[in-house]
């Protein structure tokens, strides 16, 4: 292999090193291929979510994300081995996200809270954060 060809090949390799990262990102995005995501802490195959270890009486902020876009309204209610049943509705905002508050009953800690959502056509992310 002659030196000019080696030099040309080296330039191509350097360019590839500089450009391959954005190129691969672009190609995977164009092909609709991304990393397989584990999703948030809880993905709902069935329209309910559980939170373990809820301290007694602590209010919880429940955020519902995705699931049909803005203005979608879901009904929710809570059950669980040690929780008082409560219920309500939540409407997703412009970001496709809605929030409601749940107050578990004063029971022996730790307790398990189960939040059921109905009227869901597709998996939905739910995040439960003690406030």
């Amino acid at each position: 292999m002659r030196p000019p060809r080696i030099a040309a090949l080296a330039v191509v390799v350097v360019l590839a090193m500089l450009l391959s990262a954005p190129l691969v990102r672009w190609a995977t995005s164009a092909l609709g291929l991304g990393p397989v995501d584990a999703g948030p802490a809880m993905w709902l195959a069935h329209p309910n979510a559980m939170h373990h270890g809820v301290p007694a009486g602590t209010p919880l902020r429940v955020t519902v994300d995705g699931g049909g876009g803005p203005k979608t309204m879901f009904r929710w209610h809570t059950t669980g081995a040690h929780t008082r049943v409560s219920a309500g509705t939540v409407t997703l905002g412009t970001q496709g996200r809605g929030t409601f508050r749940v107050v578990p009953a004063k029971v022996t800690s730790p307790s398990t809270l189960m939040i059921h959502l109905s009227g869901i056509a597709q998996p939905l992310a739910v995040r439960i954060v003690p406030r």
Binding site: I6, A10, M17, S20, A21
Partner: peptide, 23 residues
């Protein structure tokens, strides 16, 4: 030894440049 020199330089560059698939 052109090939060894160029390959060595490319490997060194690949180590020092930010991470990329080609690197």
């Amino acid at each position: 030894p052109t090939l060894t020199m160029v390959s060595g330089a490319l490997v060194a560059l690949g180590i020092l440049l930010p991470s990329s698939p080609a690197g």
